[in-house]
Design a protein around this nucleic acid. Structure first.
Length: 476
DNA sequence: GGCTGTTTATCGGGCG
DNA sequence: CGCCCGATAAACAGCC
């Protein structure tokens, strides 16, 4: 690319956390009406004033309220944003993910950003702070200005006075990476599998920002799905005709956002097997496997040629942490080995899974189990999924990341303020609607997922598994 | 043809 | 400063 992607004017080119959406080419190709009154109200809710105050003391009950469907997502989102601060602070994990950028988001629009310090509060309040502060300040109609437009909000470079960027970012880009968003979407679905279009829908339902420039971000979503090993494509079964495959999370992807940072993972999840394949493809010397190779898979390297050793580095990273950790679970690995012991464990792991994905503390990854267990690969996953069962459910990887496991530091995933466990119920919250959460965060109250999964509460999911509620395991 | 997926290429930013 | 991650663009292939 000569000219490297062209003039920045179009916002082309990468970068960064603050993308910029120029004009909205196709504002609502899909959205028709997706903007429910609820959504509006949500938007209207301004910066946290609302919530923070009111919810500061979110009772368990309240928490429970957020447990379902969209709410979950909202909660998840909220928690994500909240965790940006909370997680970092609470767990001293070293995860300072409070990068300037995230901070800026959090603080955007209001002093609340500083709440990071107060995160002692409940997740809900946090979320409110985070989301409300970040987005939600403006009524829907006012979205004239492009939220991340360079001009409007100059980047963190401090280009502009902090005062300028304030509110009005109704549709500011959410402080979540696409990977986070996808994870959120998948996790939010009871089946833990979503089609591409459902992922799109989830995102748009939750974040108005993404109702614009769909072409652009959807391309990115697709790229993320394909490019990141943490997402696994599950072919559609004949009995379920439709378009596109299902996407799920790799059972070993575990907690990609361990530090509560949803903009950037500390490490990119790598499926060792796939990685190995890539390596093979790229290194001519080993054509051991197939001569038929198309030779396209090296993309990882070609993509990041400069850091092809990253893998080792990453592992190194991980191991390091693990060892430090002490004890807990590994992120996965032996998957098939215990594939039979589902039940309670399954749920447990289910939790873990959610937990991990939504942001919890670092688990330990047993440094070297990979070689033996990484067997569960796509085919297997596919097979499992074909049965509508998420691999994670079957896999015993739960054993590795058991939710019950305590963090060495005393922190447990369950204890994580934004832990999904906390949000999960104790009872049926399936009926809860977004309006409930409208107070939750400015961002979510949107239309409930129209998708079926939305209708299903997570508890439903659990129930379907024969599990009632993560009661004991959770602090709830 | 449009959607879904994959792959390549770049750029920008964060972090050690 | 180099490595790595994420965002974005875009070419392409396959499928419905």
């Amino acid at each position: 690319m000569s000219s490297a992607g062209g003039p920045p004017s179009s916002g082309a080119g990468g970068g960064g956390a603050v993308p910029t959406s120029n004009n909205n080419p196709n504002p609502t190709s899909n959205g028709g009406g997706s903007m429910s009154p609820l959504a509006r109200s949500a938007y209207t809710m301004n910066s946290m004033g609302l919530t923070v105050g009111g919810m500061s003391s979110v009772s368990p009950q309240a928490a429970a309220t957020f447990g379902s469907s969209v709410l979950d997502s909202a909660a998840a989102v909220a928690s994500m944003s909240g965790s940006m601060g909370a997680a970092a602070a609470m767990n001293s994990m070293g995860g300072n993910c409070m990068t300037p950028s995230s901070m800026s988001y959090a603080s955007m629009g209001s002093p609340l950003g500083n709440m990071g310090g107060c995160m002692a509060m409940s997740a809900a309040s946090m979320s409110a702070a985070g989301l409300g502060g970040g987005y939600g300040s403006m009524p829907p109609g006012t979205r004239d200005m492009e939220p991340g437009s360079p001009n409007s909000m100059g980047r963190r470079g401090g280009v502009d006075k902090p005062t300028t960027y304030r509110r009005s970012y109704t549709h500011a880009k959410p402080p979540y990476s696409y990977i986070s968003l996808i994870t959120m979407a998948i996790q939010n679905n009871p089946t833990r599998m979503l089609t591409l279009s459902e992922i799109y829908q989830f995102i748009m339902d939750l974040f108005p920002f993404y109702r614009q420039n769909q072409q652009r971000w959807q391309n990115s979503i697709r790229h993320s799905l394909s490019f990141n090993d943490c997402f696994v494509k599950i072919p559609r079964t004949p009995d379920k005709p439709g378009k596109g495959s299902f996407w799920t999370l790799h059972p070993d992807s575990g907690n990609m956002f361990e530090n509560g940072c949803y903009l950037r993972r500390q490490k990119r999840f790598k499926d060792e097997k796939k990685e190995a394949i890539r390596q093979l493809h790229k290194s001519p010397s080993h054509s051991s496997l197939d001569a038929t190779s198309p030779g396209k898979k090296d993309h990882e390297d070609s993509h990041h040629m400069h850091h092809h050793h990253h893998t080792s580095r990453l592992e190194h990273h991980q191991h390091h942490k693990d060892s430090a950790g002490g004890g807990v679970a590994l992120a996965g690995v032996n998957v098939l080995s215990a594939a039979h012991s589902k039940d309670a464990e399954a749920l447990a792991m289910l939790h873990a899974n959610a937990e991990l994905c939504l942001g919890q503390q670092p688990q330990h990854v047993p440094t070297h189990h990979h070689q033996h267990h990484h067997q569960l690969q796509q085919e297997e996953l596919s097979a499992m999924m074909a049965n509508r069962c998420h691999p994670s459910l079957i896999s015993d990887y739960h054993s590795s990341m058991h939710p019950l496991k305590q963090e060495p530091s005393g922190y447990t995933p369950s204890s994580h303020p934004f832990s999904i466990n906390r949000l999960l119920p104790t009872e049926s919250k399936a009926d809860i609607k977004m309006y409930d959460m409208s107070q939750y965060a400015g961002y979510n109250a949107l239309s409930p997922l129209t998708n079926s999964h939305a209708a299903l509460g997570q508890d439903s999911y659990y129930q379907s598994l024969g599990y009632h509620a993560p009661a004991g395991t959770t602090s709830l």
